[in-house]
Simulated assay, not measured.
Amino acid sequence: MKTKKIVSAIGISMMLLAGCSAESGDELEVYKALEKVADQEKQFIKEQQPMTALEEKENVLYEEILSIGMKEKEKVDEKASEALQLLDEREEHLVKEQESMQRSKEEFEKAKEKIELVKDEDIEKQANKLASLMESRYKAYDLMYASYEESVELDRELYTMFQKTNVKLNDLENQISSINEMYQKVQENSEKFNQATDAYNEEKKNFYKKVKSDQE
């Protein structure tokens, strides 16, 4: 039977936190607002490691099911039940991750309001570019989240199939192929999210430098 790929959350790019050093009112408010946005993603960061650990445990169970063979139904059922429990736990972390990102989105809307108050045209222009990059990042996250969530559902279907009597090998193979295709999408969407995060972080540093230089 085909090997099932493992989704890994390791390598997700994170938002940068930077100390506020602006002195004027409007710029300082933008600084504070952007740091509040990053602060809302602490839970998102926190969820990555436990999700990865659950993925790895589930993959071990999958390999054990293959080594046992479908003839030992009772053992297969037990391993499949354990895997389904891990999927439930992984989904709980996924929900917390998504909620964290939603709070980040809501906080960023407040940050955009602060940007509109900036009087310096150059700083406002750079801040708006930052906002555009962040919106692209959120779109990339939504795609990554949707594909990851679908991969979990496909995994759930697979372990439910393992628990069925007289399941056809061809059906299992087709399901695993679907899972691997979805995992590929997860990987692609993860890379796009990382690229968007890196671009935002770089522009954020440029924005901070611009504000600081204008204040000197």
Results as ranks from 00 to 15, higher is better:
E203G: 02
E107L: 03
K209R: 09
Y159A: 09
V95I: 15
K4R: 14
K205E: 12
A131Y: 01
S136C: 10
K185T: 02
E113N: 04
Q215T: 10
M1Q: 03
K2P: 14
E64L: 07
K2E: 06
S190D: 12
S178A: 06
L28A: 08
N166Y: 10
L94E: 12
E191Q: 13
V76I: 15
A9N: 01
K210P: 01
L154M: 08
E203Y: 09
E63Q: 08
T52D: 14
V186H: 00
Q187Y: 15
N206F: 10
K212I: 10
M51D: 02
F108R: 05
N180Y: 06
V95M: 13
E35C: 03
K73M: 12
V95L: 15
E99D: 14
L158Q: 00
A22H: 05
V7F: 02
T3P: 04
Q43E: 15
A80G: 07
R137V: 11
V37R: 01
S21Y: 11
D142R: 04
A127N: 04
S132H: 11
Q215D: 07
A53S: 11
A199M: 08
N59K: 05
K129A: 13
E55N: 06
K139C: 07
L61W: 03
L84M: 05
N201I: 06
K105Q: 14
E150A: 15
Q102C: 08
E58A: 09
M144R: 05
V95A: 12
V60E: 03
M14V: 14
L172Q: 03
E124R: 14
L84Q: 07
K139P: 00
Y200S: 04
Y208Q: 04
E150I: 10
I68P: 01
K57S: 06
E106S: 12
D214V: 13
V167Q: 08
E188H: 05
K57I: 08
K209T: 08
M51Y: 02
S8E: 06
E116Y: 05
L84E: 11
L133P: 07
L17Y: 09
D214L: 14
A18G: 11
D171W: 12
E55A: 01
I6P: 02
V30H: 01
E191A: 14
L143S: 14
I12G: 00
K75A: 03
Q48G: 00
Q98S: 15
L172R: 01
Y62W: 04
K212Q: 11
K112H: 01
E121M: 00
